[in-house]
Design a protein around this nucleic acid. Structure first.
Lengths: 218, 218
DNA sequence: ACAAAAGTGTTGCTGTTACACCCATGG
DNA sequence: CCATGGGTGTAACAGCAACACTTTTGT
């Protein structure tokens, strides 16, 4: 066979870290099928648009600025995954900063959800998010530190980072040992600023040392 | 947009371990474009065949038995990757045993190549193999031991395994330390059989302990 | 007897775990 | 002054790296 004919969609899994949890941005669907359900933002693509352009386009339809980091996820191709038809879903993971999106969130039909506490999802998007978040957790657990830079672009406290890290690897870590680990690896720098928003003693705000993190793969 | 129209192909990266190296099975192309070049075996797919069926079909067109392990690789979608058209390439990595395929190789137009010493390849298949073999190397380096079971299904010597492992992680390891590592993890069992084919003292043949390896991810 | 490859143990080092008390702030 | 959360050091242990000589076979 020298030709074929398929429908393709590009789905975005837009991720951010907040309150020590991995969040994903979902959109409330405005038409049938699955009217009113939550789904991953996406669009059908045709053979004249690149995956990257499509990703940017979907993202910009939600918020008016650019993301900093994206990479391809698994492709889903079950025969009946889209209303009985086989629409192949490419997925792209977009890492962004939750605060940025919150600032400009005038739209009522998009919302962040904790990946472990999802609402009712349309199509097979529940399965997709589950697979991709598992993959992300493995990557972070396997010390692909690069991803953390994008999840924590601005200053953060050690507790924030630790809580997030713990939820990714699924186990608790001693505070002192955690600090030792990342300071030994030279991953963070004290910004000199303190955060007084928490209940007790103000916590130091850190930022990542971008140089030390490039290619720090286990 | 609620419909789209795309050409899709499924490409197989069929892998085996031999002489301590990662090998990939290529096919000599029998028509234009790229007549006579080496390419990944594959086929165009349509919306009525599953990815798994297609993978099996492509594999069986080359050899008359089944593979034991397969998983999805990256998807390639550059606008002009297929003769100026955008044909989206799904990839599937198939892990098999080189000896099996050698036994039945009556075909002249398929051949194993070392992933680091490839011939002239058609289309963008060089780039595809490079990306996927890098990914595979990372997985093996990150202790996804499962893959090794399928690359070494039959008895093997420690040197064989070590040479292969070294070429995957890109560094040399002390023989004693390597043995210590995998015996501590309980990964292998002495089969009692010796291999007298090498030059010197006969080497012990081992097999993997399948039970100990399930989910041994870092 | 020699060449080729396999087999084996010990020591130091380094990174990891376990663990508890004091400090700075707000109410 | 009390509640809340943040900050810090040390000692035992485990896993990892470095290292060289002996054994078994074929020729």
């Amino acid at each position: 066979m020298e030709n074929s004919n398929n429908e393709i969609e590009n789905l975005l899994v837009i991720c951010a870290a907040d309150e020590g949890k991995l969040k994903v941005l979902l959109k409330k669907r405005e038409k049938e099928p699955y009217y009113g359900y939550w789904v991953l933002p996406g669009e059908f693509i045709d053979s004249n648009i690149t995956e990257e352009e499509s990703t940017k386009q979907i993202f910009n339809a939600l918020v008016p600025f650019d993301y900093t980091y994206t990479f391809q996820g698994e492709t889903f191709s079950d025969l009946n995954r889209y209303e009985g038809r086989r629409v192949i879903a490419l997925t792209n993971i977009v890492i962004t900063d939750k605060q940025l999106i919150d600032l400009k969130k005038e739209k009522e039909n998009i919302e962040w959800f904790d990946v472990d506490e999802l609402p009712k999802l349309g199509f097979d998007h529940g399965k997709i998010i589950e697979k991709i978040s598992t993959e992300l957790k493995y990557k972070i657990a396997c010390n692909y530190h690069d991803i953390l830079i994008y999840l924590f672009p601005s200053d953060f406290t050690l507790s924030e980072l630790q809580t997030f890290y713990e939820s990714m690897v699924g186990e608790e870590i001693d505070r002192r040992n955690f600090k030792k680990k990342i300071t030994t690896l030279n991953l963070i720098t004290d910004t000199g600023v303190k955060d007084t928003l928490s209940g007790g003693r103000p916590s130091t705000l850190y930022k990542f040392n971008i140089e030390s993190m490039k290619g720090t793969r286990l």
